[in-house]
Design a protein around this nucleic acid. Sequence first.
DNA 1: TTCCTCAGTGAGATCGTTCTCGCAACGTGC
DNA 2: GCACGTTGCGAGAACGATCTCACTGAGGAA
Lengths: 350, 350
Amino acid sequence: MIDVARKAGVSRATAARALGGYGRVSAATIAVVRTAAEEVGYRPNELARSMITGRTRTIGVVISDIENQFFTRVLRGASDVVRDHGYDLLLANTDEDAVAERQMVRVMNGKQVEGLIVCPVDPDEVDHLAETLSAGRPVVLIDRTVTALQLDSVGVDNRRATHDAVSRLISRGHRRIGIISGVQPRFLARALRQESSEPAPGETPSEGRLVGYCQGLREAGLGVDEALVVDGGFHSDQARQAARDLLSIPDRPTALLTTDSLLTISALQAIRNLGLKCPQEVSLLGFDDADWASLVEPPITVISQPAYEIGARAAEFLLARIADGGAASQTVQLPTTLIERGSVATIGPA
Amino acid sequence: MIDVARKAGVSRATAARALGGYGRVSAATIAVVRTAAEEVGYRPNELARSMITGRTRTIGVVISDIENQFFTRVLRGASDVVRDHGYDLLLANTDEDAVAERQMVRVMNGKQVEGLIVCPVDPDEVDHLAETLSAGRPVVLIDRTVTALQLDSVGVDNRRATHDAVSRLISRGHRRIGIISGVQPRFLARALRQESSEPAPGETPSEGRLVGYCQGLREAGLGVDEALVVDGGFHSDQARQAARDLLSIPDRPTALLTTDSLLTISALQAIRNLGLKCPQEVSLLGFDDADWASLVEPPITVISQPAYEIGARAAEFLLARIADGGAASQTVQLPTTLIERGSVATIGPA
DNA sequence: TTCCTCAGTGAGATCGTTCTCGCAACGTGC
DNA sequence: GCACGTTGCGAGAACGATCTCACTGAGGAA
């Protein structure tokens, strides 16, 4: 930059003004400085620029599993939106590790990101997010929410989604409906007490989906059979075993609900391993419309989340807050859609 | 930081030394400064730190399609490795747009990344990469290579992979083998002239795979029938149509090779739409082991790329170069593996 | 002419760190 | 007691940009 100024025969200040496009500079000077910059091969140092302007045009994204298609689609949505506004993404993958999440958020704050999009691992551990906020940087949550902080969040209405799905299964004649979800069995008691269709603060998507399942059954006057509610955990082995167990009980469910795509795969594999016919012997209704869902036999009926939209909206919220700060925090629940394919059978009246 | 120094009753320099862990400070002072920092809630500004040290501990990743499972796995590999070395990732998605790629690389350079992992859109357009290099920042290529620059690159031996796949099909009795790839038909003439098993500089993966296909046929003394080589393009509609056309010619191929997972999906759909039985009437052999490949009926036999490894190795190369600069550029080709499942039939001797 | 405004410019402060230097205090060896 | 290395610390420069302010000269109004 000092070379550019010398070559153009002006002061550093003027050269900077000409290239940075701020302050007052004559058109003639701009031209001279521009060509000088060209010759010298000048590349601005955004770090130095950021130091003084306080703007890095970088936003941090912290997600739990980058290999999950749901998150990559969210990421794509966010990426497209921020790019349109001249921002870049600093990416971190937590792998569901709360300690790692804290550390990554801290590092991002150190790097002066202007805001954070986070899918928090633990709804109750929010010190790092509170810190971010108190540093004047907005935080937008995706997919999940937290208890102790009032934050913008973008997700779906999990209770409604599974509630509707259960209702649909019931209308198709199903009475014994199993659910494989990623929640501890002891949560079931609490789920059964939930009356509201509003999600509880800090409720995980899995929990919300279990609640919706209970509510759907109750609405139809059916009870919740605890034997039909199983924990699929986080790994496919565990999920497959859970599905196999559930399908091996004497009074087997006629339909299975799975609360994420990994569980859906595992359930499908279990069904096949047991030699059961889907949907004739067991119906399957999954969460998330992965690309393979329409490819397998039978094509899977799913509850589809607008993942791209979630990412895009989250980014828009964040940018809006970066722009004008204020405004009360808002929780947006985007609509899910039930995509009927071939994995749900109609059962004649018993 | 100035507050911390005041609170601790030392100079800014000493406070900085105590917290930054450099220079000489007494243990007692460190303790005092630490607690002062704690009370004040001091968070270091990495930007300022980077300004003077010249190290940002950030590396840029530029890929073409973040929603492609191959790239997300590559990304995961790179992410894990750089994280272990205390680095972060700045991510950009080009969507196969060369102009966007140039701009993103420039921005990343502006943000002073310490190096770049790039999957370049155009092998001949490398000005932005040359600029990066001349700024003293290493560049490692993944999946693809470029013509005009000597750069580290990590990928697979595409010629060998399809060559072997074709040989396998031939050993299973196939003679008419079709290929759906993402290359212009006019490239075929050039592909046919390739003798070497070494990839040509700037050759795209699709092109390399087509060359390997030709070489595999030639090795078995079979000619390449131009009617069996079709361009699947980049979109699923076009790919499906291409597959449908190929399977509708009078002397239909008995086996189909597809050079990426999108093309494999499209081919599978076309096979089903035409009411053909796989593998009895048409065998299918795809590239890339997506999660659905083992789930569909029949499970697809694929050439699997070590995507995670590619990302991890690329990151390791980059970090090594950041650490000591020199060393001649190296091209690493990781081994592919042919995973046999159920989509390839054995044909009896005609 | 005189005064005022304002476009264009340069000098120097500034952002928040690290780095370079100099200085004082403290052994230690002779 | 003197020279010397070492430890601990502070003052100020440095990184590369932007921002503030004061200055000059041109143009317009009285």
